[in-house]
Design a protein around this nucleic acid. Structure first.
Lengths: 153, 153
DNA sequence: ACGATACTTGACTAAACAGGTCGAGATTCT
DNA sequence: AGAATCTCGACCTGTTTAGTCAAGTATCGT
């Protein structure tokens, strides 16, 4: 039931972009430094997020990345699904990536019915949290003390 | 967020043992056949479940496996935790297998707070379902039509 | 006591995946 | 032109997954 390192980095990166939404692009290097992510690895990940349409990039001297859609239009479920595949713990309860399993009768499978609930629970949380929500949480958690330019995400 | 094949097989096997609880032991071969699980692989898994104290075995001609504790004393969470490790999607929100992550400030990490919720959701379901519950579901799902000896789990 | 039946133990393997790293190229700004 | 930045694909190493297999040990019926 694990999120891969790759997936976690992606979320952290998107969150940084969310926090900087509206103020131009952010360089890979800055994200990597701030979030403690290996730069080369992050390049790969951002590239992937780009081809999936989550972010846009700008090349050249003042280049960097920004979100393509608004932070409130991207849910964590969207991002994780794209990077990790199904959210469901087993293929036979996945809505987006359904796959039949080897059990004798799927319709009457008790394990399946439990996993269905697990899936719904996971999706319920992840679908309900957008990048914008995440940014709100950052601000809540950091409290009123900081100056606005220096978030520790 | 995946359950491994191994984990799924383990649940199916335990469920079979749950259904037969009280009526002696069940042979590996029968479980394998009924549940469509590679026999050799299942041997390994049952052995693992045995050393973890979930099941007992009996050798020899009339040998097989049975549950060690009552079906209502074993939750799915227990089983999955033993086979797959943490239920939490990231180590930094795991209660039983906590592991610090690389983010700058764990206490103020917004992603962590979401993952916390995901963890709670997953654990909530899985901790609430025992093998006995699972057996009940089997009986519910199969409906009143079958004769008692011929469950399709 | 013997043989058939089952579990037991540990080694082995092929393929996939995770988590990165690297070099060379293409763009853009100054 | 030159520096900064993203881009693209190849590459690498270690671990995990999903099994398979052989030889061993215990138990039961006869």
């Amino acid at each position: 039931m694990k999120l891969s390192q790759r997936g976690e980095y992606a979320l952290r990166a998107v969150l940084v972009l969310g926090m900087n939404h509206g103020s131009g692009v952010v360089r890979i290097r800055d994200i990597a430094q701030q979030q403690n992510i290996p730069r080369r690895f992050l390049e790969q990940i951002l590239n992937d997020l780009k081809s999936a349409g989550f972010v846009l990039s700008k090349r050249g001297v003042a280049g960097g990345y920004r979100l393509q859609r608004g932070p409130n239009e991207i849910s964590l479920a969207d991002i994780i699904r794209h990077l990790e595949g199904p959210l469901a713990p087993v293929g036979c309860v996945s809505v987006n990536y359904y796959q039949r399993c080897s059990c004798p009768d799927e319709g009457a499978c008790a394990i399946r019915s439990v996993m269905q609930e697990v899936r719904d629970a996971i999706v319920g949380v992840l679908e309900g949290v957008s990048v914008a929500h995440l940014c709100d949480r950052v601000r809540d958690l950091q409290g009123p003390l900081e100056n606005p330019l220096d978030y520790i995400i």
